[in-house]
Amino acid sequence: MKVLELKGVEKSYRLRRFFGRGESLRVLRGVSLSLFENEVLGLVGESGCGKSTLARIALALEAPDAGEVLFLGHNFWTLARGERKRLRPKFQAVFQDPAASLNPRKKIEDLVSEPLRLQGVNRKTAREEAEKLIEMVGLSADVLPRFPHQLSGGQRQRVALARALISRPRVIVLDEPTSALDVSVQAQILTLLKDLKDQFGLSYLFISHDLPVVLFMSDRVGVMYLGEVVEIGPRDVFLNGKLHPYTELLLSSVPGRRKRKGPQTIGEPPSLLRLPPGCVFHPRCPEAVEICRKTAPELREIGPRHMVACHRR
């Protein structure tokens, strides 16, 4: 079953100028993907590729300019207000920096129980539930009367998880959840995420720039480049398979996997305001040919459930 589906999602932001309106920045260009029940879908890409905008759309924090967002089969933006409100708690988020996402003036107890209180649950039940969840994320009830600044980064991220879990969501969107953490703490949080997924029967949309971490967590992986999904497929094809040249570039740039004299990276991603014609990756692609400069490739299947947007694959 598809718990979340994006169909041809487009999103642009208009830049402000001193006078009048500026150019429009096309952050997402026709993104389609689905997240199945009990699945971890990983999304990788470099900064500016639209990962976080996609997260905001997947959480219905923003409406797409075009395309559809389906939550548990419902087309979210066509629903009535009441129904939207009922659906929202089923989709939760955990962001990169828990120091920024947790209100510094609230106690952990209130931070964790707040989502339930907003749904009209009484104080006592909400408190009991918060206590239970705080233990499920590996903290002790001692932290409940404390404030976020009294906790370490790893502990704060656990609090953010407890807060997300308390409304018993179906989907959690994890946007760089371990990027601000030290490696040993990152390992703890990643393992916790896997355990919680099984316990609660969750689906994750796991967004990160860190390819080894994404491959560790995910069942399927999508690769984004300049607002497009250029490749999506089961995790195993990324370990040994024919891949999009950009994915190959990402893989070969990972420390420890770099080939000394392999095909070298060419330049940096271009600005979204000056997108190249044809395939957006062609200026950096070692395999680009004439057609790449003229026509944008479509996503097509090259293996079981493995889609690539490239003329050369």
């Binding site: 990152q186 390992a187 990643l190 393992t191 080894p212 971490v213 491959l215 560790f216």
Partner: peptide
């Protein structure tokens, strides 16, 4: 040793955990 095994390598599905923090 713990630092070396805390980072996900390609293809691993399990991490060795180092409890606590610095």
């Amino acid at each position: 040793e713990a630092l070396l095994s805390a980072r996900p390598e390609f293809g691993t599905r399990k991490l060795r955990l180092l409890p606590g923090q610095v």
